[in-house]
């Protein structure tokens, strides 16, 4: 017999998880949705961010999320560099789609293996004052290790939304996906705009990695679980719509959380990939398609 308490707890946990999923997926929404760059290595950068947080936490005792924020400039630079290589090798030659995909698949693999060479394949976790604490509201427990990442994730979503809609560069990024000629007339170089956007995507990935390791311990191969999640969310959210990304993240978070509660945690991963398969097969434009 399923108790409603359990279900309510699962739904709340799912919503909190959704806020975090939004943080993980923002970068993909940006690069895949708006730039048409299929960065399948995105989750590997998330894990890289998680290990950065782990390293600073275990050696200096730094707060993981603070580390995440401090590291964003570095990851922005890495992202910008990766995009330059990608652009020079594939996009400029007009062979981006498949060979570019293989390129990113290789990058994902390199990051994952390099991490296991450096840190081994044991689970790594971080310590922070809020991890382990929780509050209770009407019989529903809210764990801080979920609540904090969710809040940060929502803030990131809001920040990206404001960036895209209110700033010159943000509008230029939106422009890249629609009209490169108009963009040039505005005096913006599409390659430069894409470099900036890609850098932001990777920076967001690293910060969300810090959130990830706050929620649960991480191993180098955790990135694989997130390939399906981020692409399911990006496709479901309608590729490039920030609001859509948030809604899709919450849908996925709740679906996974319910699945884990009702059928056991080993099934929850299949939810995201199952949703991704369905979304791709039935409605490639997503729920909030452009």
């Amino acid at each position: 017999m399923i108790s409603w308490d359990l279900v309510a707890n699962a739904v709340v946990a799912g919503i909190l998880l959704g806020g975090f999923y939004a943080a993980v997926s923002l970068g993909v929404s940006l690069t895949f949705g708006l730039l048409d760059v299929v960065n399948i290595a995105h989750p590997a950068f998330v894990i890289l961010g998680a290990y950065a947080a782990y390293m600073m936490n275990s050696t200096l005792g730094l707060d993981p999320i603070l580390t995440g924020v401090l590291f964003t400039p570095l990851f922005y630079a890495i992202g910008a560099g990766v995009y330059r290589i990608y652009y020079a090798s594939f996009e400029r030659r007009g062979e981006e789609s498949l060979r570019g995909l293989v390129f990113f698949f290789g990058v994902l693999f390199i990051i994952e293996v390099a991490l296991s060479l450096t840190y081994g394949v044991d689970y790594r976790l971080v310590e922070a004052v809020y991890i382990g604490k929780s509050i209770e509201l009407g019989g529903i427990g809210i764990a801080f290790r979920l609540l904090v990442p969710c809040v940060v994730g929502l803030l990131m979503t809001l920040a990206l939304y404001l960036f895209l809609s209110r700033t010159f560069y943000g509008r230029a990024v939106m422009g890249v996906s629609q009209d490169q000629v108009a963009l040039r007339l505005m005096g913006a170089d599409p390659v430069r705009i894409k470099t900036i956007a890609f850098g932001i995507g990777i920076a967001a990935a690293s910060l969300s990695g810090a959130l990830l390791i706050t929620i649960a311990p991480v191993v180098p191969s955790t990135d694989r679980d997130y390939i399906g999640r981020v692409f399911a969310i990006a496709v479901l959210g309608g590729l490039g719509s920030i609001g859509g990304t948030l809604v899709a993240s919450i849908i996925l978070g709740v679906a996974e959380s319910l699945m884990a509660t009702l059928f056991g945690p080993s099934w929850s991963l299949a939810v995201s990939f199952g949703i991704l398969l369905l979304a791709l097969a039935v409605r490639p434009a997503g729920l909030f398609g452009r």
Binding site: V38, S97, L98, G228, L276, L280, A281, P284
Partner: peptide, 17 residues
């Protein structure tokens, strides 16, 4: 229904399912 990168992502998803 799925061409290019979408096909590739779908096959990956299939593997996990």
């Amino acid at each position: 229904r799925l061409k290019g990168v979408f096909f590739s992502i779908a096959t990956f998803a299939l593997s996990v399912v």
